[in-house]
Nucleic acid binder design. Structure first.
Lengths: 231, 231
DNA sequence: TCCCTCCCTCAACATTTGTTGAAAACTAGC
DNA sequence: GCTAGTTTTCAACAAATGTTGAGGGAGGGA
């Protein structure tokens, strides 16, 4: 139990390293046990750091939670925004296909270096927790993600101009629920399918969600079209 | 702060009343703050009961959580089972329409006396919490709901005989995510839609989910059909 | 009346919780 | 090497946590 001499690895550490280590540890634990299921001491232990250090860098526990959420939200939002721009540019001057918009939203979650990154995997599970919590969901998801999501819904509205106002929001809500559950990798589908499907096969999850959700939006478009023709 | 004389309302209470009161209080609090976000003292306070009584009736905290989950799971499973039987009987000898099966799964959540029942509303939020948690989701959802869900997937397989093995499980996973998120009533869609859609309008949520999800399953059927014709 | 069982309360327990303030260690500029 | 500023540790705090065991009291059967 005796701690290692303090300066052994110190020279290997870059500045801000322990700050990141705390964020990583907090992300991993919050994603598995939720906000109240994690103690600052457990986070510190996992990060190999003193308890008080978390408080020094981030203030109270609640602020650490926000910092964890914020860190990757900005990155993910940027990726999705670029993907949407690309889809719009490619289809211009017409509106993009529904499927292209959906995939612009989903695909950034597993392209790039982070596919095998444990940190991102944990982050997706954390988002599922936040998204489905009455306590956090309304406030935090709105704060971190809604500005970008409004861009996506606006793009979808151009592709489905006759859709009723609420339809697109409800459809996005379905997308959001399906996506966050699948990427949380709870292991449920493994049990249910008796091993046929695997929670950790995100590539497969992506493909199935993309098709399923695209069909849901297409149905809205067809109904709206039928309404227009009938009138 | 002085407690009321003990026997004032005692005569009004039926046997097992306080047991139920503890379950109700636990359900309401667990659904909002998760397992670790709730203390036995908070539950007891809400139920108007001594702390030790929860332990007397249910044993350790974890067992109380299971009891809360179990109580309505059995009821909901029975309702859904009946609805599925009715759909199958109505379509016999043919296989039911996909939409009929989907609605048999969804509709029981808001028919009957419990539509306006706060307890059921809390329960749905709790299910969303459990379903999306890596810690609980794999184990508990399987335990309480999977036997019935296998019946639904089997029924869907009869309506979509050419579907690939994993397709129906992934599609159900999408349904499950969309459903639990919507019925958790997190208030997110209210913010996102700027008031156009309302979390507490479960009737509207039901109708939108039913259409969206049916379209997702229909797409699988059409793809499978196309594959069969091509070969 | 006595006794037994079931439901319930009370007070206490050992741990664990988030947070703090002072001291130590390290870093960089001179 | 001295100093100023940042980063990190240490020890301690009051408050809250789940759980326990001893006991109270009501009700029914003998």
């Amino acid at each position: 139990m005796r701690p290692l001499p303090r300066d052994v690895n110190r020279s290997h550490r870059r500045k801000g390293d322990r700050r990141e280590a705390i964020l990583d540890a907090a992300e991993a634990l919050f994603s598995r046990h939720g906000y109240d299921g994690v103690t600052l001491r457990a986070i510190a232990r996992r990060a190999g750091v003193d308890v008080a250090l978390a408080n020094y860098h981030f203030g109270p526990k609640r602020d650490l939670f926000d910092a964890v959420l914020m860190r990757r939200a900005e990155i993910l939002n940027a990726w999705r925004s670029e993907a949407l721009d690309a889809a719009i540019a490619q289809a211009a001057p017409a509106a993009p296909e529904i499927e292209a918009i959906i995939r612009a939203y989903l695909r950034p979650m597993l392209t790039g270096d982070h596919v095998s990154d444990e940190g991102w995997k944990n982050y997706f599970a954390l988002i599922a927790y936040v998204n489905n919590s009455p306590e956090w969901g309304g406030q935090l998801m709105t704060q971190f993600f809604d500005p970008l999501i409004e861009r996506f819904i606006e793009a979808l509205r151009l592709s489905i101009p006759e859709a009723e106002p609420g339809d697109l929001y409800w459809a996005y809500h379905c997308l959001s629920g399906a996506l966050t559950l699948a990427f949380a990798q709870t292991g449920r589908i493994d049990h249910l399918s008796k091993g046929v499907c695997r929670s950790d096969d995100l590539e497969s999850a992506y493909e199935h969600i993309a098709r399923f959700v695209t069909a849901g939006f297409e149905e809205i478009r067809q109904k709206a079209e039928a309404r227009r023709v009938a009138s």
